[in-house]
Structure formats: structure tokens, C-alpha cells
Simulated assay, not measured.
Amino acid sequence: MPMRIALIVSVALGLLLAACTTPATAKKPPPAPAYDTRPEVRAFADEMAARHGWDARWVLLQLRGAKLQPMAQRLMMPAPPGQPKNWAAYRDRFVEPQRIAAGAAFWQAHAEALARAEARYGVPAEVIVGIVGVETFYGRVMGRYRALDVLATLAFDFPTGRSDRSAYFRDELEQLLLLARHEDVGPASLTGSFAGAIGLPQFMPGSINRYAVDFDGDGHIDLTASAEDAIGSIAHFLAQHGWRSGMPATFDVTPPDDAAQRAKLLAPDIVPSFDAAAFTAAGAVLSPAGQAHDGLMALVSVDNGGAPPSFVAGTVNFFVLTRYNRSSYYARAVLDLGAAVKAAR
């Protein structure tokens, strides 16, 4: 025991000595230069000012306050290889009792706006409710990053190690400044996700400028504080991308047993490419409603880990949902959550 105690004391003294000496000898990395001083940012400001007839000094003044956001860089990197995709596990993250209850409360509180959006744009209330629930848990998780910091970081300091999307984020940074000017707010006051998505529906600034609507009639668009604006904007987005009123998004289907015929139906991925007759000719078995559908459909597959995949026949409306988020898992979760909330009401 005495030898063990002596060893512990020796190690502790060594750690104490290291802690005392490290700050004096270690060098901190130099601070990142202010964005408004960098040549590429100044060129961005000049180009943007020329496009919109602004003073470039105003653009630089806004960017002077932007701060490098390392978390945005880290979260932008692809996830490391891990477990295979599992639709059942993905679904369970969203279609669960607390989120369903919150969705029912959201629907109850905003029933008039949801009904008005459905009447105007043809998008069912349960689809809108499903999107808000999957995106932000009905406003509980909207993100607290300053959009100005995130978008400046990803526009001018996009992380290496994955495909470069800095051009996309430069455009979104421009759209953020346009939004701020239009709504007469400081760009630094707008907060959202690590990628710059804002508000209850998690619209990127460009989507706000193109598709958001003033659905509460107050003369402003506020997707964070106004649930009515968020509801109307989601419905308008889907309508603008081709949502068809009264059309189901999916039909039940059993895929062909023949591997070649199944591969043929899966080849276009989520793009509706086959009518009901083509499904039947390939050996797929559609539900009666699917057999009666007179439009094109896609055979949509989602993986279930080590279990066999699950399939639905996705219509044009399913494809429209994937324009909101380019994932068949996402679209199915939206539909299932919306249906669960509707049933709970």
C-alpha cells in the first residue's frame, strides 16, 4: 500500500506541474480574421450590392458581426459508417406518444389556420401538422444558432472532407440579408439550425423569400413566432411544388417476387414513373385504391436493418414531400405522424 500511495502522489505532482507550466508555454491558435476584412467576402459584398442596388458598406457592416461557428462545420460532415438504415427505428423517433400529444394540441390551437390552408392550397391539415412535428417538435426544437454565423461559416469556411457546398451557402447568406432588409430586422437576430434553417417549418432563407406567406395578415412574415405564417407557408411550398388536392400520397403494395421486375420498378427511385397497369404487369400487387389510381407511381423502398425492406407505392404527392426534405424516410414519417395525430384528435 505505501508504494501505491507514493506512486499516486508522484503522478499527482506531475499532473500539477504540467497544469502549472502548460498555459505559459502553449500557444493559442490565432483568432480567425473578421469576415468583413477577407478579400473573398469583400468581393461577395460588392457583387451582392451591384445585383440589388445596395451600398456594399451595408453588406460588410452586417458581415462584420458574423462569427465562425465550428459546430456548424462539424455537424455538416457526413456521419461515420455505422448501423444500416432502419425505418422502424427512424419512425419511432417521431411517431411516439409525446409528439402525438403535442401535435394534437397544436392542431387544436391552430385549427382555423390549418383549415384555411387546406381550403386555399389543397394540402391536408394532417400533412402540415406532420411536417411541423417532424421538423421542430411543434416549436420545441427550432435551433439556437445565429443564422448569420452559420451561413457565413458554411459560405466561406466550408469544411474539407466532403463535397463542397459553399456556393449554395453563399446564396443562402445572400438570401438571409435580403430577408433581413425586407422584414427590417437585423440579420444577427435570426436564429435557427446548424445549417441555417429557420422557424417552425425550418425553411432556409431562400425558401422563406420564395415560398413563405403572411398568413396571419399582420404585414410581416415570421416563421418563428407566428404558427399561422408557418402553416400557410408549408402549404404554399407544397402547392408550388405540385401537390394535388385529394390525391393520397401512398398506396399499399406488395412488390414483385421476381428480382428483375422488382429492380425495374425500383430503378427510378422515388420519381413516379409507372401506372397501375405497369405495376401489375411487373408482378406487383397494389391495394384496390392503388389499382384505381389513374396517375403515375413509384415503388418506394425503405430498409429495416437486417429485416426485409418495407414498400409503398408513392404518388406525385409523395414525391412532392421529398422536395421538402429529400428522403423517403422523412416523407413516410411525416405521413405517419400526421395520421397518428389526426387519429388522436
Rank of each mutant, 00 (worst) to 15 (best):
I5C: 00
I5E: 08
A6W: 09
L7T: 04
I8P: 00
I8D: 00
A12M: 13
L13P: 00
L13F: 09
G14Y: 05
G14C: 10
L17D: 00
C20S: 08
T21I: 14
A26I: 14
K28L: 15
P30C: 00
A32S: 12
P33I: 01
R42W: 05
D46W: 04
A50T: 13
G53S: 12
W54A: 12
D55T: 13
D55E: 15
A56N: 08
W58C: 10
W58H: 12
W58S: 15
A66T: 09
K67H: 15
A72I: 12
R74S: 15
L75W: 10
L75F: 13
M77P: 11
M77F: 13
P78A: 13
P80Q: 14
P81N: 11
Q83F: 13
Q83V: 14
N86C: 13
N86V: 11
N86K: 12
W87G: 11
A88L: 15
A88C: 00
Y90C: 10
P97V: 12
F106Q: 07
W107M: 14
Q108T: 15
Q108W: 01
A109F: 06
A111Y: 02
E112Y: 07
A117S: 13
V123I: 12
P124E: 09
V127A: 06
V127E: 05
V132T: 05
G133K: 02
Y138R: 04
R140K: 14
M142A: 02
G143F: 05
R144L: 08
R144S: 15
A147T: 15
D149W: 06
A155D: 01
D157W: 02
T160N: 10
G161F: 03
R162T: 14
R165H: 12
F169P: 01
L176S: 04
L176E: 04
L178V: 07
L179H: 09
A180L: 08
A180Y: 03
R181V: 09
H182Y: 05
E183A: 10
D184F: 03
D184T: 12
S189T: 14
A195L: 02
L200I: 13
P201W: 02
P201N: 08
F203A: 07
G206Q: 05
G206M: 07
S207T: 11
R210W: 05
A212S: 12
F215C: 03
D216Q: 03
G217F: 05
D222A: 06
L223G: 02
L223K: 02
A225N: 12
S226K: 09
A227C: 03
G232S: 10
H236N: 15
H236E: 04
F237G: 04
A239E: 09
G246Y: 08
P248V: 06
T250G: 03
F251M: 09
D252C: 00
D258F: 00
P268V: 08
I270E: 06
V271N: 03
P272H: 11
A276L: 10
A278I: 10
A278M: 10
A278Q: 14
F279K: 01
A284I: 08
S287E: 04
S287H: 07
A292Y: 04
L296E: 07
D303G: 09
G305K: 11
G306V: 08
A307C: 05
A307V: 07
N317Y: 07
R323A: 11
Y324I: 04
S328E: 15
Y329Q: 10
R332G: 09
V334F: 08
L335Q: 05
G338R: 05
A339K: 14
A343T: 15
R345H: 13
